[in-house]
Amino acid sequence: MGFVSRGFKGRRRDTASSSRVPPGQYVVTDFPVLSAGPTPRVNLDQWTFTIEGEIDEPRRWTWKEFQALPAETVTKDIHCVTKWSKLDTTWKGVSVDALMEGVETAADFTTVFSDGGYTTNLALDDITGGKAWVVYEFDGQPLHPEHGGPVRFLVPHLYFWKSAKWVRGIRLQKDEHPGFWESNGYHVRGDPWREQRYWGD
């Protein structure tokens, strides 16, 4: 028997959902907000989404063009490195697979970048193959600015800081360049099932 916190009982979760909650996480029903700085106010008239870097011709969509792309609605569990998990969250947006369709690239890595200067690094394999979306609706409503609206990244199998708010594009790269939190003590990949929270985890 290892260490026991004297007098700690804890609050067990029901077994039906416990297999969906990674180690060290707890389930919330609200939607906490975490950001490193002020919430940017985004002007949709000037908004574009760009795929650039290791690509012959950068791809760029205006807001109107982006809205016209085939959308998917997905329901996913999300896991924040600050310990909360939220089950069955529903999002609408465009899959990265659709955005990348027909793209030839020598890149193995990407940097997803946002208004306000936020970046996060992701392996290309982690955002293709039905694993990532660029979303503009949460729960059937336009995405609120606090939660990354008008458009955020969604890569639910990794800790939620990878799901960059206020996203503006994907830079395809041959090498891995640690992003904002990844340069500030947080794990370069961030798999919640391996509890990859911090450097060295």
């Binding site: 906490p32 907000v33 700085g37 002020p38 940017p40």
Partner: peptide, 27 residues
């Protein structure tokens, strides 16, 4: 935090010089 940070940006402060930590009602 949302209110204060938004006011400061509106007053002309550089968003990059404003560092924030938020905590929700749960936790």
């Amino acid at each position: 935090v949302e209110a204060v940070a938004t006011l400061l940006v509106g007053m002309g402060h550089d968003a990059r010089s404003i560092k924030t930590e938020r905590f929700g009602a749960t936790g």
